[in-house]
């Protein structure tokens, strides 16, 4: 499994995301830049420049026409994927931590941080097809969620719920029309660092600084599976095809990295059998903590973004697809 190294960022990666077809990979970084890459060969397709702070979060709509990014510069920006033009810049009082298109691409969820007296907000904007006339300047909904800070959030199926992960390790099911918290479950001991939905959004995986990842059913927030590791986790992803695997990654905190070798830092992508909860393999390569993991929609490759500033794209060898547990 020879990796392709994508070298286009000058600082650590914060999130990577494949488009629906998987031919494109988008990456955001603390270097203020959003990059688009061809996933099969690692060639850079383009750069989206305009943010003046670390970019924390990115998402692309299902037709790969619109991109949304959120930054520490207190803005979220909507981009035309094809030409890099910024179609809209929404300004907030604090940093944007999480953005995501709804399942039907008509809405964008934006989560902002609580800071300097400003409460956290969970706002929903209408984007429709991205034309100036259809992109709302003001949020359709603007909530001030109570409780611990929201660190990650995602839409559920049919836009019925928003699932939010919090700083205290809890997850909450939120009604996107009222902002009311329908239910909550404290599933981790420490901060949730990632939350990725399954393809049909009926379940999702969480990653946490408490060194574990978990799979939860969306509607009930019931914990179905737990993957316990020996390192704080920053990201977790579900393999959509070919193998019933999940991939998790993390590593020692950045402040301690200089005193730690890559082996001791545990900077590996770890593969677990999703259903049997057994670790099946590791992929090394990063020189710092793994901050973000994404799996290609066809399940034939995956990518990881690290504190070391690199994105590594791995295409699986044939034996990966024929591997079977003895049952």
């Amino acid at each position: 499994m020879r990796p392709i190294l994508l070298q286009g960022h000058e600082r650590s990666l914060t999130q990577i995301k494949y488009n629906r077809e998987g031919d494109l990979l988008f990456s955001v970084s603390k270097d203020h830049v959003v990059n688009a890459w061809f996933s099969h060969n690692g060639e850079r397709l383009g750069t989206y420049e305009g943010h003046v702070g670390a970019v924390w979060t990115v998402d692309v709509n299902s037709s790969s026409t619109l991109l949304v990014s959120g930054s520490a510069d207190n803005t979220a920006k909507l981009w035309d994927v094809s030409n890099g033009k910024c179609l809209k810049s929404w300004e907030f009082n604090t940093a944007v931590r999480c953005v995501q298109f709804s399942e039907d691409d008509k809405l964008v969820l934006i989560v902002t941080e609580p800071r300097m007296g400003y409460p956290a907000t969970l706002q929903i904007f209408s984007v429709e097809n991205g034309t100036t006339e259809t992109v709302s300047s003001e949020p359709v909904y603007n909530f001030h969620p109570e409780g611990p800070k929201i660190t990650v959030a995602a839409w559920g199926a049919l836009n019925r719920y928003i699932v939010a992960g919090r700083e205290n390790g809890s997850v909450a099911l939120i009604d996107p029309k009222s902002g009311q918290c329908i239910s909550t479950n404290k599933v981790h001991e420490l901060t949730l660092t990632d939350l990725q939905m399954s393809a049909d959004r009926t379940y999702f995986i969480t990653a946490s600084k408490d060194k574990s990842a978990k799979i939860l059913e969306t509607e009930s927030l019931e914990v179905l599976k737990t993957y316990t590791t020996d390192t704080p986790l920053n990201s977790a992803a579900i393999m959509p095809k070919h193998q019933e695997f999940v991939v998790v990654g993390g590593g020692q905190e950045a402040m301690d990295v200089t005193t730690t070798s890559s082996r001791q830092g545990k900077f590996e992508c770890r593969f677990w059998h999703k259903i049997l909860e057994e670790e099946v393999g590791r992929v090394r390569g990063h020189f710092g903590p793994i901050n973000t993991i994404a799996i290609h929609p066809d399940g034939r490759s995956f990518a990881s973004g690290g504190e070391d500033g690199y994105v590594r794209v791995h295409h699986f060898d044939d034996d990966f697809f024929t591997f079977k547990f003895q049952i």
């Binding site: 499994m1 057994e278 670790e279 099946v280 393999g281 590791r282 992929v283 034996d319 591997f323 079977k324 547990f325 003895q326 049952i327």
Partner: peptide, 15 residues
């Protein structure tokens, strides 16, 4: 890529 060898699995584990 250290895929687990699955040749030594007990019947209880398989069950």
């Amino acid at each position: 890529q250290d895929m687990e060898s699955s040749s030594l699995v007990s019947s209880a584990e398989r069950q």
